[in-house]
Simulated scan of single mutants.
Amino acid sequence: MSYPPDPNNPYGQQPPPPGYGYPQQAPPPPGYGYPQQGQPQQPYGYAQQVPPQPGYGYPQPPGTIQANNGYISIANLGTVRIATMGQRFLARLLDYIVTSVIVGIAMAAGLAGAVGLSDKATKDCTVYDAGSTAWNDCLDSNTQAGTNIVLAFFGLLAVIAVFGLLYEWLLVGLAGATIGKMALGLRVVREHDGQHPGVGGGFIRFIIPMVGNLLCGVGTLLVYLSPFFDNSGKLQGWHDRAASTVVIKK
């Protein structure tokens, strides 16, 4: 097949037909080596960056349960271990022993004082003639002494009750632990910042089990067993949830 001469070709050589003598190159597939329109362009020669998984390398939000069972992330404390129910039971048992010893000493001292007061105040009225003024005065004196002894006994009970209130409430609220918890290395902290519960939080945490005593102690037992019903992994009892606290092992 002949071609008309090209006026721009002084030698009269015919150009080869398109593709003659050269392999045909297929156009690159879409996206190969070139950014597509409408997509953000990445620098050529650099690996694509994969966004990090949530939580990887970053601090966890307060109250986040870690992958390891029994650990929790708390602000200002980092990752800490949740106290087990066995540890909490032993701590409460130690608290019961401590408070029982203190209350027993106070009761013994109070009763000894009451007996001594009764011996000194009570008079033998038989030495007076029955119906006489001296006899009546003696009886009145003995009655008053008995009343004072009863009042002293109830006053002692009130002091013991206040001690029980302040022991659990203030020690947990201000120090984060009772004597039993301190002995086992346990601490009660606020879930959102890791600080002590404070006076308000300590009172809420204390009063809820005490209200359970109105049900003959069954309510208190349920409150102390309620961490078993917590499916969040934090072992929070009803009193812990109300006060936004958790019990941790230092």
Rank of each mutant, 00 (worst) to 15 (best):
I65A: 06
G31Y: 12
L221A: 15
G55K: 06
V150L: 15
V189Q: 02
A130Y: 15
Y71D: 06
F229L: 15
L184F: 14
P35C: 04
P52V: 07
T178G: 08
L166Y: 02
Y71N: 14
S232H: 07
S118C: 04
W169E: 02
G176W: 07
Q37V: 05
Q24S: 05
V247E: 05
H192L: 08
A75C: 06
G38T: 12
G63S: 08
D240Y: 08
G180A: 05
H239C: 07
M107G: 06
Q87E: 15
I105V: 14
P59K: 09
F203Q: 00
V218R: 12
T147W: 11
L156R: 07
G219L: 03
L186I: 04
L111V: 15
H196S: 01
M1H: 11
I207C: 05
V223M: 03
G116W: 09
M1T: 06
A83Y: 03
V172R: 06
G237H: 03
A243N: 11
G200T: 09
I149C: 02
G104T: 12
A158N: 15
L77Y: 04
Y46C: 02
A112E: 05
M210N: 12
R190N: 13
F89K: 15
L151G: 03
Q36P: 03
F153H: 08
W238S: 00
A177V: 02
Y58G: 08
V188C: 13
T143G: 00
T126D: 13
T178V: 08
G198P: 01
Y32C: 04
G63P: 02
L94W: 10
K181T: 01
W169C: 04
A145D: 03
G19P: 03
K249W: 10
F154Q: 14
N136L: 12
P61I: 11
R205P: 07
V101C: 08
P59A: 02
N142L: 04
P23Q: 07
Q13D: 05
Y44E: 09
F229D: 12
I82N: 00
A161G: 10
G180R: 00
T133K: 10
A130W: 08
L156V: 10
D140F: 02
